[in-house]
């Protein structure tokens, strides 16, 4: 059932222009975007015996928003976490095939995963600020990467918080503990923290699943703001969310990338009957 999808993506990876099929026509084009930023080719992820992601081949276009949908346990989070090698924390996890970031193999022998994670930031399902002040949370990354000048740090903190649309809410209490913020604020803080290290890619792993609708709306607005500046990948359970925020959508089922197309295309005219069943809610 994957055959026609994978062949499509393989053929487009050679011709740049045809990649536009991933982009919905009604959405604004991003200047300078659209290059294949992350390329998976026959990429599989195993947890010991279990193959969680099976021979996925796909392109993720730079500066656009790519959504990953699929039922629970379909491997979408695993795939996302593989991109900045968060799965390294699981001892039994190994990969096969290739996964390229800017043309370099993410799982290459000489790849520095620390450098990679600096370029590919991640925001997690549950807001996870450090038990430190708001300022220290944002400044954590820049400090790690050698910024120690207080003025410069303050500049970065302000810029990141503004980008994450939370500056106005926290500007007068930067020295307060971040755990005192509300869930939605914490999550935007985590986005700001990720932005502070100036990544190229933003991976969002179900960023709104622990938030109320109002906070969710703010995060979605934020994603729209960031579109065009960062390559964004968002895993979500919420199909409305995927259709609202993304340019292209991947549908995973049982570890297989069933379909990858422009969001408008995938939701209005799915090619695969499985996709259709899922988006019409026949199974979840």
């Amino acid at each position: 059932m994957t055959t026609d999808v994978t062949t499509t993506s393989e053929s487009v990876s050679t011709k740049k222009a045809t990649r536009d099929i991933y982009l919905p026509a009604e959405r604004k084009k991003v200047a300078g975007g659209g290059a294949a930023h992350i390329v998976a080719k026959d990429f599989s992820i195993h947890y010991g015996e279990f193959e969680a992601v099976k021979k996925v081949s796909a392109d993720v276009l730079s500066k656009y928003v790519t959504a990953i949908i699929g039922p629970s346990g379909c491997g979408k989070s695993t795939f996302l976490r593989a991109i900045n090698r968060m799965n390294d924390l699981i001892p039994s996890c190994y990969t096969s095939g290739s996964l390229l970031f800017d043309g370099e193999d993410i799982y290459g022998k000489y790849t520095d995963e620390v450098l990679l994670r600096k370029k590919i930031g991640m925001v997690f399902q549950k807001p996870n600020p450090f038990p430190k002040s708001i300022f220290d949370n944002i400044a954590y990354g820049p400090r790690l990467h050698g910024v120690s000048d207080k003025k410069k740090l303050l500049e970065i903190v302000e810029r990141s918080l503004r980008k994450a649309a939370i500056w106005d809410e926290v500007c007068d209490r930067l020295d307060k503990n971040a755990l005192g913020l509300s869930g939605g604020q914490q999550q935007r803080l985590c986005v700001a923290r990720t932005l502070a290290v100036e990544p190229e890619v933003l991976l969002l792993d179900e960023p709104t699943s622990a938030l109320d609708p109002k906070a969710t709306a703010k995060i979605e607005d934020l994603i729209q703001e960031l579109r065009g500046s960062y390559t964004i990948m968002i895993v979500t359970h919420n199909m409305q969310q995927a259709s609202r925020v993304s340019d292209s959508t991947m549908f995973f089922y049982e570890g297989v990338l069933v379909e990858h197309a422009s969001t408008a295309e995938l939701f209005t005219n799915p090619k695969d009957p499985m996709t259709e069943d899922y988006i019409t809610g026949r199974f979840s």
Partner: peptide, 18 residues
């Protein structure tokens, strides 16, 4: 210590020791 702290730190490009 919650695993999420570790993930957060690593995802920001921190080394293990850091």
């Amino acid at each position: 210590v919650p695993k999420t702290y570790r993930e957060a730190s690593l995802s920001l490009g921190s080394t293990k020791w850091n």
